[in-house]
C-alpha cells in the first residue's frame, strides 16, 4: 500500500480509536486485496511504511463480499457496485480478504 496512505490510515485510527473502527476495501484483484487486508490487520507486509510492524487488528471486509452486500441498500449497491460485481473476480477476492480477517 502507498506509504502516504498508510500514514493517513494510521492517523485516522489514532484519532478514532480501534474499538469501533472497521475497514472496507475496493481493490480490483485478490492479490492487492490481500496485501491491503494484511496491512490494516497485522501490519505492512513489505515492512516499508508507517504500518510496518503495527498490528492495527481492524475488522476488514471487501465491498464485494456477500455478507457486506447483505447489509447495504440493494438499490444503492446496484448503482455503486453492480457492474464491478460482475467484472471482478468476486470469489477469489472474497476468499483472500476472509482468510486475513479470520486469521
Amino acid at each position: 500500500m502507498d506509504l502516504e496512505d498508510q500514514g493517513i490510515i494510521k492517523g485516522t485510527v489514532d484519532e478514532h480509536g480501534r474499538e469501533n473502527l472497521m475497514v472496507v476495501l475496493g481493490s480490483p484483484d485478490a492479490e492487492s486485496a490481500e496485501i491491503y487486508a494484511e496491512t490494516v490487520t497485522t501490519g505492512d507486509p513489505t515492512y516499508a511504511g508507517p504500518l510496518a510492524g503495527v498490528s492495527l487488528g481492524l475488522q476488514v471486509y471487501h465491498i464485494l463480499e456477500d455478507e457486506v452486500k447483505a447489509e447495504i441498500d440493494p438499490v444503492i449497491y446496484e448503482q455503486q457496485i453492480g457492474m464491478m460485481e460482475m467484472v471482478l473476480d468476486k470469489e477469489a477476492i472474497s476468499k483472500s480478504v476472509k482468510k486475513i480477517r479470520e486469521g
Binding site: 484483484d29 453492480g82 457492474m83 460482475m86 467484472v87 471482478l88
Partner: peptide, 25 residues
C-alpha cells in the same frame, strides 16, 4: 500489486455492455 489496468478497464466496458443487454455475460 496494482493489477492489469487495461484488462480491468476492458472488463468494465464489457460489464456495461452486459448491463445494457448488448453483450452476453
Amino acid at each position: 500489486g496494482s493489477g492489469n489496468v487495461p484488462r480491468n478497464n476492458y472488463r468494465m466496458i464489457a460489464g456495461l455492455a452486459v448491463m445494457q443487454g448488448q453483450l452476453k455475460r
